[in-house]
Amino acid sequence: MTTATYAGHDVEVDGEGFLEDPSEWTREMATEIARDAGIETLSAEHWKVVDFMRAQYAEKGTGPTVRVLGKTSGVSIKELYELFPKGPAKTAARIAGIPKPRGCI
């Protein structure tokens, strides 16, 4: 476990940069986490996905898969990969401050 500083706060992150405690997350942090994940600026479309991830996590205790994202977030799978080229579910989860999804699909 390592400590990272986002938006002036020290937070614990795992080896891949995922927040250990999702409750520490703030919207200001998201912008900086995104930069670390290779996304310079979060557009409105990025936010749509990040907010959806947070909502799903709050409701179900786990982030959605790419398939679920494509069907229910209002952003198509093609767009999801354009927004998050390093993997939509994984990158968006990291930016949203929720745990890394562990599914195979």
């Binding site: 939509p88 994984k90 195979c104 699909i105």
Partner: peptide
């Protein structure tokens, strides 16, 4: 299919 899709999902 799972291997290919899983690869993409991981960038």
């Amino acid at each position: 299919l799972i291997m290919a899709n899983g690869a993409r999902a991981d960038g």
